[in-house]
Design a protein around this nucleic acid. Structure first.
Lengths: 135, 135
DNA sequence: TTATTTACTTTGACTATCAAACAATATAAC
DNA sequence: GTTATATTGTTTGATAGTCAAAGTAAATAA
């Protein structure tokens, strides 16, 4: 159990620095790419929902969104039913960044699992499913 | 492969927010606890080595260490062989914080693996070993 | 119709961070 | 041995990310 614990921590740390270096290459910040990621994988959403998913306040998000709009990665549009709300979504440039980042992730997953046999990958997949459910 | 990739990303995100909430309870910042973690698991070391392990500059570390010393969590002591260098190490209070944080990690590992049978845990452990080697 | 809640923005303060300039010491070149 | 170069750590100035609190506008409840 202790060794598994240490392996998980090591895995997390390595993933963390991998992410940092991959993000640095894009020229955008970690927070900015993370915002693009969430919008890319879940689609357009309101400020409040996006802030919750990013675990930041809407105040912080407002200034982040200002920058991303200026960069041409996202757009604000009015919410149809609720005039207090604003829909935030990716531009085509934002989508391109998301796709690029996603490809990097898939490539990493392929790289780190290349010495695992099919059975291990199956067990690993099922184990991650079960673990993710327990958080 | 895609589903495993998504599971890894989900796992990382959940671990990330778990860490954030656990750290918040200590009253110290993420960066501060991370510094304590590295010193706790690797023992005393020079500023440069610590900065490298934390992936920050020595300039950033200097101010961080100032604060942690003020909090009574770490101490600076002269390096025996190299008078340019300084050894940074945990106080007993720092060690207590490290132990507490470590216990939380072990508890988490136990919690998220409680529905895995022994064979899965074995495969999972070996798979993490192999994956960590490939980064 | 009024009171309360919700969504977003703005502002002020704080922390983490880096790059660059600096001082002290160690190491390499000659 | 002396000089030149590299390394270690600190300081300083600038920037980004963050929150809490106050403010505005709109939706919902009383």
């Amino acid at each position: 159990m202790h060794s598994l614990n240490n392996l998980i921590i090591e895995f997390y740390d390595k993933l963390s620095s991998w992410e940092q270096s991959v993000v640095k290459d894009t020229g955008y910040s970690l927070a900015q790419v993370h915002t693009i990621e969430v919008l890319g994988s879940h689609g357009s959403m309101r400020m409040k929902e996006l802030a919750d998913r990013l675990a930041i306040t809407t105040g912080t998000l407002t200034v982040q969104v200002d920058k991303l709009v200026k960069f041409g990665l996202i757009t604000r549009s009015p919410h149809e039913d609720d005039r207090r709300s604003i829909l935030v979504g990716l531009t085509s440039e934002g989508m391109a960044l998301h796709k690029h980042h996603n490809r990097m992730h898939i490539q990493l997953t392929e790289d780190i699992t290349r010495h695992l046999d099919q059975n291990s990958i199956d067990v690993l997949t099922k184990s991650f499913e079960k673990m993710n459910r327990e958080f």
